[in-house]
Amino acid sequence: MALKLADYKTTVHNDWCPGCGDFGILNAIQMALSEMQTPLHRATIFSGIGCSGKTPHFIHTYGIHTLHGRVLPFAQGAKICNPDLEVLAVGGDGDGLGIGAGHFISSGRRNVDMVYIIFNNAVYGLTKGQAAPTLKLGMKTKSLTQPNMNNSVNPIALALVAGFTFIGRGYSYDVRHLKELIKKAIEHKGLAFLDVLQPCPTYNDINTKEWYQGLDNFNPENGKQMPRTYKLEETGYDGIVRQPYEASTKMGQAIERSNEWGSKIPLGIFYQNEHIPTYQDRIVGRIPNYLEIPPAKQDISDQNNKPTAKLDKLLDDLRADK
């Protein structure tokens, strides 16, 4: 029996603010899982802390709402122990690029086969609107007493240099496009990162839905009003590394595009490279049967509750008469 979109939803009351961009991301995740017919029990959604941290409670799969900034190591631990799980990690930009930035970098180096989605609204919403790592220098959103003193981090470029092997950006009000991106991220062999632009209607009065729609943004050539976001794929951009030698060039063009902001903000796949071995592949290099019997599928005791591991060899080596 095919799983319906409704099967991926829980009845938990959603207390996000009306108009919150998070709703679009939640819908896109549920739609992607439903279209891929991922069995409910096979998927686990991990989250950090903040408004986005509540996401797993609204999705009817396993849901692990972790600590502030620590979603990636929690999620990697589960995926490494049971590579059959479909693991999605979600969190805010403060969670992933502020308090959790160290894990962001190190996760890139590992390339565990899973997906990480950042709900990027440039503010700490749940603590009432402080500046988050993606807020631009000098910006003063509604609840800041003074303009932001820090420069913003570029999540796409950071993911690229950290070693993420799939890097894309979506927009929470373009749910259909975002859903496709999520599906591609899940299908990707390796660690996929999605930067999702997500207006916070309560605390970010600069990067609003209207701002993204470009109500004040005009094409200098024809004077026509135009949305700020555009899709990379519609401009002929191709971020996929088809041969290993292309990696450097593709990284360069991805960084160039990642610096676009203001009147033109790219969406879509910036970079994808499946030539880098996943962490799972690397474990197989050390433990040849890892994928057949990963940690979660080992019987550690027999029917008499005795350990199955045999220490004889290790102990023999230490015997006094040896």
Binding site: R70, P73, F74, G77, A78, G102, H103, P295, I300
Partner: peptide, 21 residues
């Protein structure tokens, strides 16, 4: 059988990854 050992980026990752496992 086998044991997977992961050297993490810090002790916070070490404990949270172990909990994930």
């Amino acid at each position: 059988d086998s044991i997977v050992v992961v050297q993490t980026e810090d002790e916070i990752a070490a404990i949270t990854m172990a909990i994930g496992g």
